[in-house]
Nucleic acid binder design. Structure first.
Length: 676
RNA sequence: GCGCCCGUAGCUCAAUUGGUUAGAGCGCCGGACUCAUAAUCCGUAGGUUGCAGGUUCGAGUCCUGCCGGGCGUACCA
């Protein structure tokens, strides 16, 4: 029996879990469930990553303490994960006493190894926020090519690298303040001293996928490694460094140690020895991460572990990013979908299955194609797999399974044998391959049922025995599928266990057929995906503010309504008398002698034109209106005014003066269309 | 710019690591069937493996150069 410790990257406490995060947590959860099903001793450890400037700033924005913020977010994370059936053995926090102690211990090792040095660093400082600014919090004009709106490290227009202090007209993205250069002492780890070790470790024993080892060799390890800046001056939300008052560990120092801290919590509550898990070569340690945080886990982290004499990772499994319909997730396109939004519309099993069917052990990005999502879930999972139970179970409810497993032409044995290859695919994280093989088994099972036509046998009482045998085969083949799919679809495995009165708990249950047991009444195991629900989810994600915006309730003032109370109710017929139309402003001119009026010419499409005098001069300039669509009252009795006849009104809100807000139709409306 | 990775049927992916005529699923089209959640079964069509060279008895696979895409580039957690 292997002893295996597994982690996923720690989600940052600055935002909610979204479908991109879920690639990793589902991948890890499936792998862990597979190991447990194989009767290995396996624990899944994770935690919230809680430190850093971003948390500090966000807490300030929300007007709450950091600890309150991270507690709130942790609760949300834990809840989202649970609802996706992601089962951690422990979910901790980097802001814990265990983590503080382990950080101190590892830090002391690095000091003792002579790896720590101190150097003065000059950095931009935001005087309004009172904090130093990481490069991503500074924007300005590129000193090389003059492109505006560039971050403090490099220019995405010309590719130039520079120091944030060289940016022209730099501003802080936190407060908009003009940053000033200040200096502070920082602590560095001389990681170059471990260069030889890292060369060896990254290349050896398949700790890394080959493309990652190549990448590190070509990108970092081909030249001396730079010192790693691991401290931040106050104010910083994190742990103060014991032997360097006023300085805090950079969040990437304490985050991976959080893996250990969370394990220690688990050990303390389960009577386990911490060193059995982190200091024993009998334990495998597997980290699952995204490719964006590769060097933290493949260079700094092994360096920290090596120096402090802890066990090095057995393997770091690195996955790519999620794209949706071939593009980056986008808030405006509604493809930036929060876990909680997904759950309002769709069954988590769909996503578990879909990701599994596409995940390999490569670093490639994974695309969530919505059409394909529907097709795969409906035809593979429901039509092919679940349907197998649906079409055989009810013929066997009365009789139960045959006492002796019938001759099935070798189908069960074949599928049992295939279990080996399927297990190897799971083990190597090539879930796509595992799923392909499972589906091939399901195809053979459906062919068998089709060929033996139990629906014909049931009409002939003489063939009851034969019918029972056919269903015994069909249900056993289905049960094998449920075992093989259990890591991906735990609920389906549960339902199958209930149907056949034999809970699915071990991989080996796929190797022996079940006979002579009762068959329960078949209940629907999984619904087909309705495309409408997917579309609704995308629509909900589009309307919503981005996930990491504050989730506080809207607090609009009641003053405008109080200033102008609601009018008497009117009937729909009353309302219909007013003919509101979309119109385009084709001309707009100032009326020199008027204080409030602009003269507008509106087009209602075709040759239809209206001249309207609108009292919006104090809020709008004529040139800004030309070409825009507005909503006008088109059947208003024309009215003579001092400067001419007005043939309608345009609609606007607001008390007047500068506060006038014209109504615009949404994109796509055409002049002349009626507003209902 | 530099580095890593990718490019195979309309879509998503295979191809035993250089070895017969490049295979599946979905989709399309045609047929069968009716137990099942419009499901399942049988069949047809669909390819100059991004382009151009090279190595080899043999190249989707190895090498070189282009073209296109993704990501990273150390302060994004």
């Amino acid at each position: 029996m292997r002893r295996i410790l597994v982690t996923s990257a720690l989600p940052y406490a600055n935002g909610h879990i979204h479908i991109g995060h879920l690639v990793e947590y589902l991948q890890t959860d499936i792998w862990v469930r597979f190991q447990k099903l194989r009767d290995n001793r396996c624990i899944y450890i994770c935690a919230d990553d809680t430190h850093g400037t971003a948390i500090m700033i966000r807490a300030r924005e929300e007007g709450i303490g950091e600890e309150e913020l991270i507690a709130k977010m942790q609760k949300a994370h834990v809840d989202d994960f649970a609802r996706f059936d992601i089962q951690f053995d422990n979910y901790g926090s980097t802001h814990s006493s265990e983590n503080r102690e382990l950080c101190a211990e590892i830090w002391a090792s690095m000091r003792a190894a002579g790896l720590v040095s101190q150097r003065e660093v000059s950095q931009l400082f935001d005087p309004t926020a009172g904090t130093f600014l990481a490069d991503r919090f500074v924007k300005g004009t590129c000193p090389k090519c003059g492109a505006a709106d560039q971050y403090g490290d490099s220019c995405d227009q010309c590719g130039a690298h520079y120091s944030a202090a060289d940016l022209i007209d730099a501003t802080s993205t936190l407060t908009g303040a003009k940053p000033e250069v200040r200096t502070a002492d920082h602590l560095f780890i001389n990681i170059e001293k471990l260069h030889e070790f890292l060369d060896r470790w990254t290349k050896g024993d398949e700790h890394l996928q080959p493309e990652i080892a190549n990448y590190l060799a070509g990108h970092f390890l081909h030249e001396p490694l730079r010192n790693w800046d691991v401290s931040r001056p106050a104010p910083y939300f994190g742990f103060e460094i014991p032997d360097s008052p006023g300085n805090y560990w950079y969040v990437w120092f304490d985050a991976p140690i959080g893996y250990m801290a969370s394990t220690r919590q688990w050990c303390d509550t389960h009577g386990e020895e911490f060193d059995d898990w982190w200091a024993s070569d009998r334990t495998e340690i597997h980290h699952f991460i995204g490719k964006d945080i590769t060097y933290f886990h493949t260079l700094f982290w092994p360096a920290m572990l090596e120096t402090s004499r802890y066990q090095l990772p057995t393997k770091i499994h690195i996955h790519g990013f999620l794209t949706v319909n071939g593009e980056k997730m986008s808030k405006s396109k509604g493809t930036f979908v929060c876990a909680s939004t997904y759950l309002e519309h769709l069954d988590p099993a769909y996503l578990r299955y879909y990701y599994a069917s596409k995940l390999t052990n490569r670093v490639d990005d994974l695309d969530l194609n919505l059409d394909e999502f529907v097709a795969r879930v409906n035809s593979d999972m429901v039509g092919n797999v679940v349907n197998l139970a649906s079409r055989t179970a009810k013929f066997a409810t009365a009789t139960g399974l045959s006492e002796k497993y019938p001759d099935d032409g070798g189908l069960f044995d074949q599928a049992a044998k295939d279990g080996q290859a399927i297990a190897e695919a799971y083990e190597s994280c090539d879930f796509a391959r595992a799923i392909r093989q499972i589906l091939a088994t399901a195809d053979r099972a459906n062919q068998f049922v089709e060929h033996n036509a139990p629906w014909k046998l049931r009409n002939d009482p003489d063939k009851a025995r034969q019918l029972q045998d056919i269903c015994t085969v069909g249900l056993n083949l289905f049960r094998q599928l449920a075992v093989y799919l259990a890591p991906v679809l735990p609920r389906l495995a549960e339902q199958t266990g209930e149907l056949l009165g034999d809970p699915i708990e071990h991989w080996d249950q796929s190797q022996q057929p079940l006979t002579g047991t009762p068959v329960g009444k078949f209940k629907h195991m999984m619904k087909r995906v309705d495309r409408k629900h997917l579309d609704a989810m995308i629509a909900a994600s589009t309307e919503r503010e981005p996930a990491n915006e504050s989730a506080e309730p809207v607090t609009d003032s009641g003053q405008p309504l109080a200033a102008e109370p609601l009018a008497e109710t009117c009937t729909i017929d009353d309302f219909a008398k007013v003919d509101l139309r979309v119109a385009r402003v084709v001309a707009a001119e100032d009326v020199p002698k008027a204080n409030k009026l602009l003269k507008l010419t509106l087009s209602l499409g075709g040759q239809e034109r209206r001249t309207v005098f609108a009292g919006i001069k104090t809020a709008y300039r004529p040139e800004d209106l030309i070409g825009r669509l507005v909503v006008c009252v088109a059947n208003l009795t024309p009215r003579k005014m001092k400067f001419g006849t007005s043939e309608g009104m345009i609609t606007a809100a607001g008390p007047g003066g500068k506060d006038i807000f014209l109504l615009y139709p949404d994109e796509g409306a055409k002049p002349g269309q009626r507003v209902h």
